[in-house]
Design a protein around this nucleic acid. Structure first.
Lengths: 211, 211
DNA sequence: GCAAAAGTGTTACAGTTACACCCATGG
DNA sequence: CCATGGGTGTAACTGTAACACTTTTGC
């Protein structure tokens, strides 16, 4: 007997940290998963899994890797796991039932099977992808300030960035545009809000290093 | 009924071109594939597929993508295809039965299903990977000259590279080392042979472009 | 000695990094 | 008026790209 499941590593920003959604497994927490349903593509099945756990029908979703080792089994037989990772916008999170099990990716409890390795691999891919594509916006609301964007990058990359250099580069890249609005209400000077330009080229070709 | 197959896009250099191994499909040529066998991991199944078609037990092998749309079917039911790409060293090729169906990747015949798209995606990944990892060596024999290495890069990338810059960068990266041997017998001055340093770090972190 | 491929450095330019102060608002 | 976060430019440096001639071998 052979089964396929989709696993989804669901990332979001929360309390200044990158967090992952976990659910109850056998003994240990585990990644949300769902057996592949007849009539659904792999991606639709992953989206259905996302919806089961967050009620959100849509999100940035990308295939990560397919795991097919022999330890991977259901009760009845062999299992192959197709892992996806998802990025949730922080404003979407705030509207959730709030009884979710979010865990900071830097401080995960032990997980079932190899799920810890899978999360770490997803994080590696996310960091890597941040460096040559515009994927960081997926974690922010539609309108955001440059400081919020910079904080997002810093949280994911785990390092601080220079404010002036960050702004210059992100604006020169032409992938965001100012909106007429400002974020006021907080302390300090109100920030101009920007939005991602949907017509911008999503992936900027990185300069070749080698050779 | 649900089945899993592994597909393998087998690349090699041949006659100054990057070529792909195809086999006979229904009406059109197709990529080598093999239904997942009980007791084999996905990767071992892909290796078994490679061995069926080339008699080579080993090669550079990397998972590419898993295709799970609804058009993908066997006679009996649904099919999910886990695609891998393989790189064969050019000296290994020369020892093959030679009745293989190699096709230049730039001049493919029409293929069954979406196999043409899969090959093009594999090529994109190969090109991309060449820019930040040492994967180019996998297509060469163990000992190679710098000119041969440069030609390999030029063929895959589809552009010419500056000889002096190429040499400086590849040597500075410290990923190859000279051997005491030379390649003589051809026309012109004999070339010093180099080999890949197995202790070198395989992936060089590309400079971040963004931001 | 000539054809053919191997090998070798320097200079101009572009992109990256480092760095400190003034501005607008709310309380 | 002061605390808080927003916003701005320049100079040194580092890495990249462009470029032409000499060397070694076989015939």
């Amino acid at each position: 007997m052979l089964d396929i499941e989709t696993l989804v590593i669901i990332f979001s920003l929360h309390q200044g940290q990158l967090q992952v959604l976990l659910c109850q497994g056998q003994g240990y927490p585990r990644l949300p998963g769902r057996l592949l349903q007849d009539g659904l593509t792999l991606e639709d099945n992953a989206l259905a899994c996302l919806k089961e756990h967050t009620s959100l029908p849509q999100a940035y979703l990308e295939q990560l890797y397919t795991y097919g080792d022999l330890q991977r089994r259901t009760q009845t037989g062999r299992l192959v796991s197709v892992a996806y990772f998802a990025l949730l916008a922080s404003d979407a999170i705030d509207q959730l039932p709030a009884q979710q099990q979010w865990h900071p990716v830097n401080d995960l409890p032990p997980l079932v099977h190899d799920h810890t390795d899978i999360v770490h691999y997803a994080l590696r891919r996310l960091r890597y992808k941040l460096e040559y594509s515009a994927v960081g916006f997926e974690l922010l609301p539609e309108a955001f300030s440059l400081s919020e964007l910079q904080r997002t990058y810093e949280i994911i990359l785990g390092e601080t960035l220079d404010k002036r250099n960050f702004r210059r580069r992100i604006l020169q890249a032409g992938i965001i545009e100012p909106t007429p609005h400002q974020r006021s209400g907080g302390e300090g000077r109100p920030a101009r809000l920007y939005r991602y330009r949907p017509d911008a080229i999503a992936e900027v070709k990185a300069r070749r290093l080698f050779p």
